[in-house]
Design a protein around this nucleic acid. Structure first.
Length: 460
RNA sequence: GGCGCGGUGGCAGAGAGGCUAUGCAGCGGAUUGCAACUCCGUGUACACCAGUUCGACUCUGGUCCGUGCCUCCA
């Protein structure tokens, strides 16, 4: 069986994946902060880690994939103040929309989807531990992580402290002992969300929730920690600092998570898509206009660490590629899949090579072509199995291609009538009439195919 | 300023020290009344300049260009 290799941000290289416990793989990916709709960049992360967890599941007997919802954050508070909706309403609304949109993209729900606000006691306990270990200090109702107490700080993002402080746009609050210190806990006013704590009523800082939830649901150290590339600094760097200083080895950054996997950005016109730039394309809008599977393939068409430029053209191409695959599947409709066939090695090799989805898709296309040529039961099963891991080809080919229409968006009776008229015209060599009918059908959004067994129609 | 990533055929996008993915589009052909569907065939592409090598698109150094991070960000 192929050996999984992953690019580990911690070591900046591709390396063999050596599980901490081969009988149980544990993976955590930073999920969304729910104050607005997810954009396609957020979706990329969800799709990438969905595929990664699928790959792990085919390789190992047990996998626990945790991806959180952050439902306490200053941006949520700001959204609440702006819209007048309560925090609970906002976070529930956008968490539900996020999950629904991701489901449309074929993303399976993570095994565990913890919410930050369900883990305040865990965070407080973690902070207390850091204070006890002299890695954090309370000041002015805040608790701050003492960065100089952790000399290994900066190892993930590869920056040393002296360099980054010079010229960095760090606002140094008066209560900070060191400019790089970051907030673990901060005071809340009466109209902000607040929890009682040893340091007064307040709320957690941005990074502590992931440290607390990962430890709670996976235990330390765990195998893989993931997220978008922009989380590397400061979010993941700070998670490592908190977790290593509280529970792990202060010399060993991998004592929190062994492998760090970061997906690249989705860009628009070559520029990063981000909420702050305002050039976002929302997953929620895209799923209205395109099949989720098409969007998913578009995201998988580039290697996960490469930037991906989001264009209508790329969506069209994915759609056509899926059409081809479904067409191939339709061409082996009469073949009974041989479910004892092994997972296709060419696809697995590609996926095991640092999740090379473009290569895996190419391998899948080759398999599909071969399956049609050979009408092989084993190949058919392999296509379906590969599709499943990629989260593709889960639909009925007839329906995908429009040969079977389950809704009443077309008038089948009328189409059949017109086709009958056309067949008659053709029999009489009345091709003018025949073409006229075809034009009429085209105008109705119906394409026709003349085959030896008669004329087929499909919705386009 | 510091750290990082990338420049591959018309487009998208893998890959690799010599065996030149894949998809889409284009072109030619088969099939068709004409189409559509399908099938077959078809493209000396690796930013630039040096170097290493028998041989580099792939390694090394430099140049140019693009882009990302440096406490809002997937």
């Amino acid at each position: 069986m192929a050996r999984l290799k992953l690019h580990n941000s911690l070591t900046r290289g591709k390396q063999d994946f050596e599980p901490i416990d081969p009988s149980h793989i544990r993976i955590y990916a930073c999920g969304p902060t729910v104050y607005s709709y997810a954009h396609i960049g957020n979706a990329r992360m969800a799709v990438v880690f969905d595929v990664l967890s699928n790959v792990l599941r085919t390789l190992y007997p047990r996998v626990t994939y945790v991806s959180n919802i952050t439902d306490i954050d200053d941006k949520i508070i700001a959204a609440s103040q702006k819209t007048g909706e309560t925090i609970d309403v906002i976070t529930k609304k956008y968490a539900d929309i996020y999950n629904a949109d991701m489901r449309s993209l074929g993303v399976q729900a993570p095994d565990i989807q913890p919410r930050a606000t369900d883990h305040i006691p865990h965070m407080i306990a973690l902070i207390e531990e850091l204070i006890e270990n002299n890695h954090a200090y309370a000041a002015d109702g805040h608790v701050l992580f003492d960065v100089p107490s952790f000399p290994a700080y900066g190892g993930l993002s590869g920056r040393n402290r002296d360099e980054q402080i010079a010229g960095a746009r760090v606002e140094v609050a008066s209560y900070k002992k060191d400019p790089a210190d970051f907030v673990l806990w901060k005071p809340s006013t009466d109209n902000e969300p607040r929890w009682d704590s040893p340091w007064g009523f307040g709320r957690p800082g941005w990074h502590i929730e992931c440290s607390a939830m990962a430890a709670e649901h996976l235990g330390l150290p765990f195998d893989i920690h993931g997220g978008g590339a922009d989380l590397k600094f400061p979010h993941h760097e700070n998670e490592i600092a908190q977790s290593c200083c509280a529970h792990g080895d202060k010399e060993d950054l991998s004592s929190f998570a062994k492998y760090w996997v970061h997906n690249g950005f989705v860009t628009v016109n070559g520029e990063k898509m981000s909420k702050s730039l305002g050039n976002v394309t929302l997953a929620h809008d895209l799923v209205k206009d395109h099949a989720g599977e098409t969007l998913r393939l578009t995201l998988l068409f580039a290697h996960y660490r490469q930037p991906l430029d989001w264009t209508e053209k790329s969506i069209t191409q994915s759609k056509k590629t899926l059409d081809r695959l479904y067409q191939n599947l339709r061409d082996v409709a009469d073949v009974t899949a041989d479910d004892t066939a092994e997972f296709p090695p060419s696809v697995m090799d590609a996926l095991c090579d640092d999740l090379n989805t473009p290569k895996a898709i190419a391998a899948l296309l080759a398999l599909a072509k071969e399956a049609v040529e050979t009408q092989s039961p084993a190949l058919k099963a392999q296509i379906i199995a590969a599709g499943n891991v990629l989260g593709l080809l889960r639909q009925n080919p007839e329906e995908w291609l429009g040969y079977a229409v389950s809704d009443d968006s077309v008038d089948a009776t009328k189409i059949e009538y017109l086709l009958q008229q056309r067949t008659e015209a053709r029999t009489n060599n009345d091709y003018a009439r025949s073409d006229e009918i075809r034009d009429e059908l085209t105008a109705m959004g119906i394409a026709i195919e003349d085959t030896a067994e008669g004329t087929l129609w499909k919705k386009i």
